[in-house]
């Protein structure tokens, strides 16, 4: 118990802050992106599809390296950010969030695409012939009937952001209270041969991840749409 009392909780708070913000942003970005990818017939669709799936196959270090080039002191985004906000983007909390959004993009977009594709075309057409706009159809017909996919997207993104390591290390480094999330804190503890701390952090992360996934699978069963 004494160990737990002396435990540094900041990495956890930071991790969940990153995860919550990333998931929220990705939900906002993911719905229009997935809507486009699920329903569009445009030629550039395949290119965008490939681009969204890229974080699944690229090593986090590759992604992190390029993001560092873009977001660093001399990168285009980094320069712009510094001139507006006053501090640089890389090695700061905001930089980690942007990197996580890009890194976790497929974990939100792919379940959402599957959700959009699961909606029978006739439901959408019925809504149109009843005089409803595309937006009204999206909000009242499509999204409410793909709740399971939305929940899957949210939880996978959340869980994936919690477990992220490589990209955060490349972009954020290991700065206490700013970018030292749990996964990095574990690495840090192991490096310092502080196995007790590493053990506790790991066990907590393990349990949280398990329960997050358990909730997804339970909810998915309950939210199945009945026709």
């Amino acid at each position: 118990m004494e160990v737990l009392q002396n435990l540094e909780w900041t990495p956890f708070i930071l991790t969940f802050k990153v995860a919550f913000i990333t998931t929220f942003l990705l939900l906002i970005i993911g719905i229009p992106t997935a809507y486009f990818l699920a329903y569009s017939n445009l030629k550039i669709k395949s290119a965008i599809e490939a681009l969204t799936a890229l974080p699944l196959v690229l090593p986090p270090s590759v992604l992190g390296f390029y993001l560092l080039l873009v977001m660093g002191k001399n990168g285009p985004l980094g320069k712009l950010w510094e001139s507006i906000v006053g501090h640089q983007l890389a090695f700061h909390f905001e930089g980690v969030v942007i990197a996580s959004v890009i890194f976790s993009l497929p974990f939100m977009v792919h379940p959402l695409i599957a959700g959009f594709k699961s909606i029978p075309k006739s439901l959408i057409e019925a809504s149109y012939t009843l005089g409803k706009s595309k937006l009204s159809t999206l909000l009242n017909v499509i999204l409410p009937n793909m709740k399971a996919s939305i929940i899957t997207g949210i939880t996978l993104t959340f869980a994936h952001t919690i477990g992220e390591f490589g990209v955060v290390l490349m972009i954020g480094g290991n700065i206490e209270g700013e970018t030292r999330v749990v996964s990095i804190a574990i690495y840090d503890a192991v490096e310092k041969l502080d196995y007790t701390t590493a053990h506790i952090y790991s066990a907590i992360l393990f349990v949280i991840s398990f329960f997050v996934l358990l909730i997804v699978y339970t909810l998915n069963k309950r939210l199945e749409v009945k026709y």
């Binding site: 006739s122 057409e125 019925a126 149109y128 012939t129 005089g131 749409v225 009945k226």
Partner: peptide, 20 residues
């Protein structure tokens, strides 16, 4: 005119009722 602007009542083979 898009379907929204045509005053037609379309009845589908599979009913197309909104399950939610």
């Amino acid at each position: 005119l898009p379907p929204q602007k045509r005053n037609v009542g379309f009845v589908f083979q599979n009913y197309a009722l909104f399950p939610n």
